[in-house]
Design a protein around this nucleic acid. Structure first.
Lengths: 245, 245
DNA sequence: CGCCATACGTGGGCGAGCGTACATACCGTG
DNA sequence: CACGGTATGTACGCTCGCCCACGTATGGCG
């Protein structure tokens, strides 16, 4: 599926000028992202940042009573560990691998130093952070106003955007944990989607059959996040003009 | 109440080294924050950042159907307009003055230039952004898991922390808009709090009578945000040691 | 090929919050 | 000091999602 492992599988790294990527490359360490692995614990020290090449990482807040809620998801469009360059060093949330894959990681000292140089990497990381903020914002709005089925559609689409195929390996129980709802609620909503031919659900394997219909069914939150990402990472107008010429 | 208008009323500006504040001072323009004023519209260009000296600004997401949800609040501990230095230039949310006050504002070009210098201001702004992210995260969690009364307590405490007295001018309708719930729900919850002597509610004027009881009633979300702010803006360990000596 | 742990499906009762509708109380204004 | 607009209190039926308790089936393993 993937020709060779290269940092360019991650969109942030791929967007770096060649010179910056070359400076970083010797320090980028490939690591696996096994399903279920906890990358950061809530409040725990973060000693590396991770640039996923494949797979999905969920940022979860775990409450005192043990129940959880997903705050955002990160795939190869982004990075896990923004607290390191934001200055806090840690966050009150947990990062868990939701879909297995691999990542390139960089140690804390290195990312801080590179960020402090103030070049293209800093610019990219800050923009990515803003995109992440939009995702968190929409999660809050969606939790308040939208029904479970719409949230499920949003979750499926966000996951699909970060995976190479239209299949995902995920039980309804795990989806329920992410969304912070009951498993039965997911069963019902997924049942409706399946009955209408949008997805095919078979014992922990979901296959999205009709993405267009899914996009019609989802709430506005998905589109807002998607468009904001596109806007923030669109090539600069100057560059567009240059290419057009 | 306030001796004289000085940028130091804003905690971020007050935390700057004297030299940096002096460089900024000539460009800081005092502006009023009248109740209800819209500082930024969703998706609209942001041409200044605002450092509140007093009052409260709410960050709201407004949905297609017109209903809204508060994402975070900003008082004199923070700043409005992070998208300017984060690079996006705008956000898909609206900033509205929830409690009248005043602010110091800085034009877009200046804040970008100062941020790019990479000094104490950059460090402070990034940490503040992380604190804001925590607030947004907890809003999402709270929306998902906690009942209206707890959310009301959280909202009251967050507001109280940003005001000089224990009184706030706010109708139940406006609180309902912020929380994204019905006015009647707020009436009921506030009625219970009033019956138990935690607050005194009189036609758009709330007086918090027993803050300690309010803190017992609130969900964990408030404490998480509060502690994370304290942690992010605590004096550096080296400084603490120096002061202790 | 049969077992059984795991994943999925279903149902009843319940509480929170919504939509709607209307009653009451306050307070500034003329 | 009467008036009217605004703010607050109350009520009822409804829906969504929760808690709880089962029933069913799939697919990997021995």
């Amino acid at each position: 599926m993937q020709a060779r492992r290269t940092p360019k599988q991650n969109h942030l790294l791929a967007a770096l000028p060649a010179a910056e990527l070359m400076r970083l490359a010797p320090h980028l360490e490939p690591v696996p992202l096994p399903l279920g692995a906890v990358i950061y614990e809530s409040g725990g020290a973060q000693d590396h940042v991770y640039f996923p090449a494949s797979g999905i990482v969920s940022l979860l807040y775990v409450m005192n009573d043990g129940s959880a809620a997903e705050i955002a998801v990160v795939g190869n469009e982004g990075m896990v560990g923004i607290a390191l360059f934001m200055g806090g060093g840690t966050t009150p949330s947990r990062a868990v691998v939701q879909s297995a894959g691999s990542a390139w990681r960089l140690d804390a000292a290195r990312i801080k130093a590179e960020f402090a140089r103030g070049g293209a990497l800093q610019r990219l990381l800050l923009r990515y952070t803003q995109a992440l903020i939009t995702q968190m914002t929409q999660t809050a709005v969606c939790n308040r106003h939208h029904v479970l089925e719409q949230q499920l559609c949003r979750w499926l689409l966000l996951s699909l955007d970060r995976l190479p195929s239209n299949r995902l390996v995920m039980t309804q129980q795990l989806i329920a944990n992410m969304l912070g709802v009951r498993r039965e609620g997911v069963t019902e909503a997924a049942g409706r989607l399946q009955a209408e031919g949008l997805i095919d659900y078979r014992r922990g394997r979901i296959c999205v059959l009709d993405r267009a219909k899914l996009e019609k069914r989802v709430c506005e939150c998905y589109g807002v996040v998607r468009r904001e990402c596109d806007r923030l990472f669109a090539p600069a107008p100057a560059l567009v003009a240059a290419l057009a010429a």
